[in-house]
């Protein structure tokens, strides 16, 4: 492991929200890798270490749930959190760990990320 900080892959097609989200997460003490498309995100996950994927749900090309499925297919131990503005959980959300409204705010976002990381770290510590 290069650094102690957990690595978060942040995916969003919009540049400003992506940058701001990255800054918030970095301030919260995470190392942040960004990607502006689901396709490049999948490449990043397979090419380097990532502890958690935080992705926008509605993106051009593959949407968040599709991305989650692709990641879980090869990396079932990486938690996937989707940030969503929609008011319904999509039917194919089986691969997603947490859905989070964009209106929840930065503090709640950080709480959820921490909780998800803790959840995934537990089983890893048992063996």
């Amino acid at each position: 492991m290069i650094s102690d900080k957990p690595v978060i892959l942040c995916v969003d097609d919009e540049e400003n929200p992506l940058i701001l989200r990255k800054l918030v997460l970095e301030k919260a003490g995470y190392e942040v890798v960004t990607s502006t498309s689901a396709r490049s995100a999948v490449e990043i996950v397979s090419s380097r270490h990532v502890d958690l994927v935080l992705s926008d749900h509605l993106m051009p090309g593959a949407i968040g749930t599709e991305l989650a499925r692709q990641i879980k297919a090869n990396h079932p131990t990486i938690p996937v959190i989707l940030l969503s503005g929609v008011n319904e959980i999509p039917a194919d959300a089986g691969a997603v760990d947490v859905f989070l409204s964009k209106a929840e705010g930065p503090e709640r976002l950080c709480e959820k990320i921490a909780a998800a990381l803790a959840e995934y770290r537990k089983p890893r510590s048992t063996p």
């Binding site: 929200p17 918030v24 940030l83 503005g85 209106a103 705010g105």
Partner: peptide, 21 residues
């Protein structure tokens, strides 16, 4: 209401994050 709120949600998150920073 949903559509409007959703369209607002995206920039809202960004602005919230900006003020948080």
């Amino acid at each position: 209401a949903g559509i409007i709120a959703h369209e607002i949600n995206n920039p809202l998150e960004a602005i919230s994050n900006a003020f948080y920073l």
